[in-house]
């Protein structure tokens, strides 16, 4: 995954700074509502389950999930990007769905995956999921 990110990761903003800060230590977190317990991603300034805008925090997450859907990209999204590579939706154990790269092209829906990291030049890290076990 040396070719990641394909497009530069924009700076964190007021809402996402805490999430990206955790990635500097390779800690996978998910925004969690202290009021109702809802877990959501990407982070927002409001809980979309109960509407609360206080007590949203970045709780430690398992970093595990399973493949929800995947596709092998055969045409580069911009010149100079090596293809093919696999893009997938991962259903995290905590509920939210996130996008990732996957190694190789022989995946099955439902396969378990675990988070790994690609370090970015600015000290942050991009989570990338791998086959678990």
């Amino acid at each position: 995954m040396n070719d990641l990110p394909v497009f530069a990761v924009p700076p964190a903003d007021d809402v996402t700074a805490g999430w990206w800060d955790a990635t500097r230590e390779h800690r996978y977190t998910l925004q969690t509502c202290g009021g109702c317990g809802h877990v959501q991603h990407p982070p927002r300034v409001v809980c979309i389950h109960c509407g609360s805008d206080d007590d949203l925090w970045f709780a430690p997450a398992s970093g595990s999930g399973e493949v929800d859907a995947w596709t092998v990209v055969h045409r580069p999204p911009r010149p100079g990007v090596a293809v093919p590579y696999t893009i997938a939706r991962i259903r995290l154990a905590e509920g939210p769905i996130v996008l990732t790269r996957l190694d190789g092209d022989d995946w099955r829906i439902g396969e378990p995956v675990r988070v790994g990291w690609v370090d970015l030049d600015d000290g942050r890290a991009l989570p990338v999921f791998h086959r678990d076990g």
């Binding site: 859907a69 990209v73 996008l99 990732t100």
Partner: peptide
């Protein structure tokens, strides 16, 4: 949010979303 959490991985847009829907 997509610019921070999805675009860095390099999905084709809109194509890869429809591809994943077909896969699923």
């Amino acid at each position: 949010p997509e610019a921070q959490f999805e675009t860095p991985y390099g999905p084709l847009f809109p194509l890869s979303h429809y591809a994943m829907a077909a896969n699923r």
